[in-house]
Design a protein around this nucleic acid. Sequence first.
RNA 1: GCGAUCAUCGUAUAACGGCUAAUACUCCGGUUUGUGGUACCGGUAAUCAGGGUUCGAUUCCCUGUGAUCGCCCCA
Length: 422
Amino acid sequence: MDKKLPTEPYKGVRDFYPEDMAIQSYIFNTWKKTVETFGFERYDASILEPADLYKSKGAVNAEMVNDQTYTFIDRGEREVTLRPEMTPTVARMVAGKHRELSFPLRWYSIPNLFRYERAQRGRLREHWQLNCDIFGIEHYTADVEIIALAHQLLIDFGATPDMFEIQLNNRAEMSQIFAGLGITEPEVINEITRLNDRKKKITTEEYETALLSIVGDTALVNQIQEKLNCQNDTNEVLEGLKTLGINNVKIDRTIARGFDYYTGTIFEIVDTDPSNNRSMLGGGRYDNLLKMFKDESVTGIGFGMGDVTMRDFLETHNLLGAHITKTAPTLVIIPTDSDRNLDSQKIAHLFRQREVKVSVDLSNKKIGKKISDAVNRGATFALIVGPDELNSGNFTLKNLAFETEESGTIDTLLTYLISHTT
RNA sequence: GCGAUCAUCGUAUAACGGCUAAUACUCCGGUUUGUGGUACCGGUAAUCAGGGUUCGAUUCCCUGUGAUCGCCCCA
């Protein structure tokens, strides 16, 4: 009679059942570990931000703000947006304590971000993204450092350098290249940049036709292509990375990046496997982001890397598997019947005080079933608790992996268990 | 926002327009009233929603919903 609710999650977002959460935790933990070896500190903020943070001029690309954010009016008639990216938030936080913070900063966060878009491979409406930024260093070695971190992140998941490629570009250098060709109008540069971004997806003919319709001059079309194809291009960031032993990197003049706030280095890391031919990570340098909040400016460079694309990468290259561990209890206490549940819970407390992970099987299944359930859950030990054991004080601890048993008082078994777990 | 493909037990698959919609795994129970994953036996459980064509629709058509893949954009 009454209509039941669907059990599916909201469109484009995920439920994390324990087996998914195990993967998610592995990704987050690995991120955290690597990033902290680079001396980064963690911060976070609310998922809610005033809509103005994204709307103010030149903050981000207009399409994303207008068409791809979750924006609503709250009960106090404030316009609120679910954060679609973290950079404006961290810029706001840095600007807010500009005078108190001791630069340079190395900050990271793993926020969940929301974008209202059509879900597809590697793109969902909610994703988590590792965000790393260095604030307050103009020197190019900050660019090198942040890209070296991005590189190391993948290495620490077990990736080898042939599995991915770092693609570098520089907004300032692009402006110079265009200026050298006599192209100075920002509108035209913008159009060419957007076209370049799509270059790998379209044919050379399509590219040339589109480029011609922008610049209206065949000679110029050829000159632009020549500049873009220059394989020998290098810069100090590229050389710096090579000095650090990072060689799967190249200059790619078609790298564009969507956000308007980038002013210098921009980079992406792409999967070299053709079946997962996507950008997994992207970032760049921004000089003017704090100007929204203050007259003073602080330069920053950072990147974001998504959990969805990360998982796709790890699955594509078979880098998950052995790393994923379910959180199983070490010990399952098995009462022979429900009347022994409380006695069992009391015993469990003794083990928990010694930091043993214990669950008590409170079901009314038969003992054999409870034991096989414990095995299936991945427990290492099982302890049977029944009237005989409680009366005599003599218990049996089963080692489920080796199919051995140990008898004794709770105290001796506790000592035994602790000495047999690492 | 646009385009393509798809939608069957909890999961993965099967069924020419025609028998009670099948099989495997999972789950539950039993063989075994207090002790292990196996084996054997049994059980629960599905045609996304609404309309149309037809004697008859899981199958064909339309609409909606959802998913996947691509475009746009981006992690």
